[in-house]
Structures are given as C-alpha cells and as structure tokens.
C-alpha cells in the first residue's frame, strides 16, 4: 500500500499540493483526475521521488520512501512520465532491456532475458523488437515504454497521462494491457488521466483533485456522478449508464 500523509509542495508562494493525504490500495487501478494544475502529476512525481516535497511523508508498504535506497526503490516502484523524448537512438529491445537495470546492473542474465521477452509479448511488440524507436508510431512507442516498465517488474506502476496524444485504438490497447497487469500479475497501477470516461471504464478507484487538494475519492459510482464532477471541473455534466458503464457528457 502507498500511504501519503499531509504532503505539501509549493513553488515560491504558490501551493501546488496542500496537505494531501491518501491511501492507495494494492492490486487495483487507481486514477487521479482533475483539472489542469490540480496537483495530480506533482503528487505522482513526489511519490516516485522525481521531485522533492516541502512537507509530509510518503510510505511504501509501511516504510518511509525517503529512507529506501535508490536500487531497492526501483525494484518496487516504477514511474513513466508523459514526455519520453530520448536523445539516444535505441531499438525497442534495447529500451526494454534497460528495465532490467535495477536487477542486472547492465549485465543481462538468462532470467533478465526471460523478463524482457515476456514484456515484449505482453505489449505485442515482438515483431517490432529490433526496430528503432523513431521508426515506430506514437502508440507503439508508448507501448515500448510500458514494456520497459513491465520488464522492471515492480509491484507498483505509476503512469503520468499514458494516453496523451494517442488515438482511440491505441488508448484502448494500452488500458487493456494495464488492466491485465492488475488482473493477471497482481500489480498496483496508479494513473493520471485526462479522459474521464477512460478513468470511469478502467479504474477500480478514483481520486479527484482540485487546487492542490483532494476533493473526493472513492469507487467509480461514488466519483463519476454529476455533483462530484461539476464540483471538481466547474463545468456542466450529464452522467449516464451505458452498457453497465458510467459515461459522462460535458460538451
């Protein structure tokens, strides 16, 4: 379980996160939703130690994250940010191999190779494995980065807007992969999402942010309803059940 206790983050005088506390349960997909600048990505970065915090604590399975050494941390939790521009030219397989670095320190053993192959299979990239990343489509490239995270084989996987710039087909593909990661491999996935309907269809738990604070958290039924969403986004919403799913209209 990830436990966030009264975390504060500020840039200059502006508080981006104001006393945020949250528990993220194991074996579920948890989505962070909310308007731009609500602090979702910032919290994700703080949990994964990409940026520092100005107050509060984060616990990973009961242990303070600040005390965990970098390598052990990388075996427990992985993060994928939205901007994945690389300056080096790599093939898909090379990129995925990097996911084994926390275990192999650069020298791949048979066990690592197994993990790499499985990650490629999982993301259906076997055929593209020896292509260079710059030869792939946006969706394939995003899957390659997810494959790297899968090869990293961490219990917790954090993703910052993984659907950014992807079309409908690729977005669905990626969400299905994440669903399988939770269902089949028992991973814990935390996603920052912009598309509320994707969050509604694929999450087990949703946390709604606004102005650096958590407005409300709960399962899909509790969050995806007119009152909560209108409060969070300050826009008119219509929420309906379609084929057993909650779908929002906000146009």
């Amino acid at each position: 379980m990830i436990e966030v206790k009264s975390v504060v983050k500020q840039y200059g005088r502006k508080r981006v996160l104001d006393n945020v506390s949250l528990k993220i349960e194991k074996g579920k997909i948890t989505s962070f939703i909310g308007p731009n600048g609500a602090g979702k990505s910032t919290l994700l970065s703080i949990i994964s130690r990409l940026i520092g915090k100005d107050g509060g604590q984060v616990y990973l399975d009961g242990e303070l994250v600040d005390g965990i050494d970098c390598n052990s941390f990388a075996r427990k939790l992985s993060i994928l940010r939205q901007s994945n521009h690389l300056n080096v030219r790599l093939t898909v397989r090379e990129l995925v191999s990097f996911g084994r670095f926390p275990y192999s320190e650069g020298k791949l053993r048979a066990e690592d190779l197994d993990h790499i192959e499985r990650a490629l299979e999982y993301t259906q990239l076997k055929e593209e494995a020896d292509k260079y990343l710059d030869e792939l489509s946006g969706g394939q490239r995003q899957r390659a980065f997810i494959a790297m995270v899968i090869a990293q084989d961490t219990e917790y996987i954090l993703l910052d807007e993984p659907l950014n710039n992807l079309d409908v087909k690729h977005s669905v593909e990626i969400m299905k992969i994440l669903r399988r990661l939770v269902g089949e491999l028992g991973k814990t996935v935390v996603i920052v999402m912009h598309d509320i309907n994707f969050a509604s269809c694929y999450s087990d738990y949703i946390v709604a942010f606004n102005k650096g604070q958590i407005v409300k958290e709960g399962n899909v039924e509790e969050i995806i309803n007119k009152d909560v969403l209108e409060d969070v986004y300050d826009t008119n919403f219509v929420v309906q059940d379609i084929m057993n799913r909650r779908i929002c209209f906000y146009y």
Binding site: R49, A74, S78, N84, V88, F98, G106
Partner: peptide, 20 residues
C-alpha cells in the same frame, strides 16, 4: 560507469531505474 548508459535516457528515466 555502468550508470552512464542509463543516464543517457534522461533524469526521470534514470531515477525510475534506480540511479541516485
């Protein structure tokens, strides 16, 4: 020195892969 390959992936990826 073994970290150099990882560092070439950029700061965020390097931290994710357990480099201090």
């Amino acid at each position: 020195l073994k970290n150099l390959d990882i560092l070439s992936l950029g700061r965020e990826n390097a931290i994710n892969l357990g480099v201090d």
